[in-house]
């Protein structure tokens, strides 16, 4: 992942060795948080089997309370990533380390939270909290996969162009199309006009995510204007527009895919906190 940043160095015996100068959030400090959260998961699992809880493992036992307290503190701390990210305070903290910890400690909640239930699931507010937690975690895993797989495609697709430049390029082509379409027959001019009128951003989330643009007026204009006398210019402009549109749509699609999981992850987190409040209050009130 970080090949280009590998520095070659000599060890004491004069041999060349490679030193990695930077890591992504998953590999941060040689998987420090993966190790910590694995150890934590292992410890609570061992504890689960060793703790002498009667009549059976249960959220209301002393061990259940311990796990529940750990889990709720973890959930609240994990939620704070959203604040940390936006709160540019001074000091020696790194958001990458926070993300790394967030990911691995979040995953460890699968173990801690589930053991806390003692596998007693049902149709009640307590299980709702557990289910919401799992939803948050699953959407988080989806996010990790997106973060691991998509950045490369985003970078390759834009080829040094910024989104603003893509939009400006599109507008420049539109201006030329407008000029070039003046001599066309009314039916063909109407096709070009439709392409000029169509809003790139229209079509909603599904269209953006799926990358399918059936109603694309530019594609239709390109089909409708066959090669003929004096049409080469319009046609080549439409082809350029089509290529630019494809790039921009791919760009918007990738950006949407990198973000859309957050629209599950974050609201589900708040629902989880609400459900947790209900869960904890009810447990203490209806002992």
């Amino acid at each position: 992942m970080a090949g280009v940043f590998r520095d070659r160095d000599l060890d004491r015996r004069g041999r060349v060795r490679e030193v990695t100068l930077h890591d992504g959030f998953l590999r941060h400090k040689s998987f420090r948080w993966l190790k910590i959260s694995a150890a934590l998961s292992l410890a609570v699992t061992l504890g689960y089997f060793m703790a002498d809880v009667t009549p059976r493992p249960n959220g209301g036992s002393w061990y259940g309370y311990t796990l529940g307290t750990i889990a709720v503190l973890l959930i609240l701390w994990l939620t704070l990533l959203g604040v940390r990210k936006r709160w540019m305070t001074r000091g020696r903290w790194s958001l990458k380390a926070w993300t790394s910890a967030h990911v691995y400690l979040g995953l460890s909640l699968i173990v801690i939270g589930t053991l806390h239930t003692g596998f007693q699931l049902g149709w009640n507010v307590h299980t709702l909290a557990w289910a919401l937690m799992m939803l948050v975690i699953v959407s988080g895993i989806w996010g990790i996969i997106a973060y691991a797989a998509l950045p490369k495609a985003l970078s390759s697709n834009r080829e040094e162009l910024t989104q603003t430049q893509m939009l400006e390029g599109l507008r420049a082509i539109d201006r030329q199309l407008h000029e070039a379409a003046q001599p066309l027959a009314p039916s063909q001019a109407a096709l070009v006009q439709k392409s000029l009128d169509q809003n790139v951003f229209a079509g909603g989330l599904w269209r953006r995510l799926s990358g399918r643009h059936r109603g694309c007026a530019t594609a239709r204009a390109l089909r409708g204007i066959r090669r003929g006398d004096g049409l080469e210019k319009v046609q080549s402009l439409l082809e350029r527009k089509s290529a630019m549109l494809a790039r921009l749509r791919r760009h918007l699609q990738l950006k949407a895919m990198l973000e859309v999981w957050l629209y599950v992850h974050v609201p589900a987190t708040f629902a989880l906190i609400a459900a947790l409040t209900a869960h904890i209050t009810s447990v203490f009130f209806f002992w």
Binding site: H22, D23, K85, G91, W93, L95
Partner: peptide, 17 residues
Amino acid sequence: IKGGPACVRACPTGAAI
């Protein structure tokens, strides 16, 4: 600013160095 360049500290994935 204690802690150094904000751009690097604020990168969630470690892409900025």
